[in-house]
Design a protein around this nucleic acid. Structure first.
Length: 227
DNA sequence: CGTAAGATTCACT
DNA sequence: GTGAATCTTACGA
């Protein structure tokens, strides 16, 4: 088993050091409302590999590549914050698709993207991402210089990208404070489907989607043994 | 108004 | 693996 030497980082990972690549990302059209106005399981899968972009108040833009998502269903999903109806916390999930639902948990925040039509409370939790641009800013926010620890977890991602409740309800279909884009037509990326992490109910539902062939995930996939 | 729980993370054993 | 940090929300009295 290969293991990175202590104090060094794996060679894996890409950046947007090439100015033209960065320009392509920053000028790409955000995914439109129609993208989000679908079943959260489909949206969760198709978000894998997409770029999540955050413009800070002073203008600097942070970019990460989404590697791990979870779907929270409007029907039959007791792990969904909205499964017992609307509350002050979850009201964004009842709003139109293509907006953020941000909530606080212990000492952290988590980012969801709202799916399906207004009145249908479903969303996709962004669980992990690979940092691509604005590394120094994100290192500072996370108090680490290990890229594998920057955004591999929903709380870490929000801390790295300065996402908190002030972004709850924000539109992610415009290039304003937060948006998602992709550089080309959807690629056929391979991913695994597993139960969701951390939920205390509906634990069996396979609603977590994890990009394969990346180390930028919140939990290592269980290795299938035997054979 | 008191209390309990939580879609997490980190340090430590 | 276990426990603590630390804060917001939800809910019942």
């Amino acid at each position: 088993m290969n293991r990175a030497p202590k104090g060094r980082f794996p060679a894996q990972g890409s950046t947007l050091e090439d100015p033209s690549d960065l320009r392509d990302v920053l000028t790409a059209a955000p995914l439109p409302t129609a993208f989000y106005d679908r079943d959260p399981r489909i949206v969760a899968q198709e978000l894998l590999g997409c770029m999540l972009c955050r413009r800070l108040s002073h203008g600097k833009v942070l970019v990460v590549r989404i590697t791990e998502t979870e779907a929270y269903l409007a029907e039959g999903d007791t792990a969904n914050h909205a499964h017992k109806g609307m509350t002050r916390r979850n009201r964004s999930m009842f709003g139109p698709p293509g907006r953020a639902y941000v909530y606080a948990i212990h000492t952290h925040h988590c980012l969801n993207l709202v799916t399906e039509p207004e009145g249908t409370a479903s969303a996709v939790l962004i669980r992990a991402a690979e940092p691509l641009h604005g590394l120094e800013e994100m290192y500072r926010n996370r108090r680490t210089r290990n890229p594998l620890l920057v955004a591999t977890g929903p709380g870490r991602l929000c801390q790295a990208m300065q996402i908190d409740k002030s972004l709850d309800g924000a539109e992610v279909t415009r290039r304003e404070r937060l948006w998602v884009c992709r550089l080309s037509a959807p690629e056929n990326l391979r991913f695994a489907i597993t139960p969701r992490i951390g939920v205390t109910s509906a634990q069996e539902l396979p609603l977590r989607f994890v990009l394969l062939e990346t180390d930028f995930v919140s939990r290592k996939l269980k290795v299938r043994r035997g054979r």
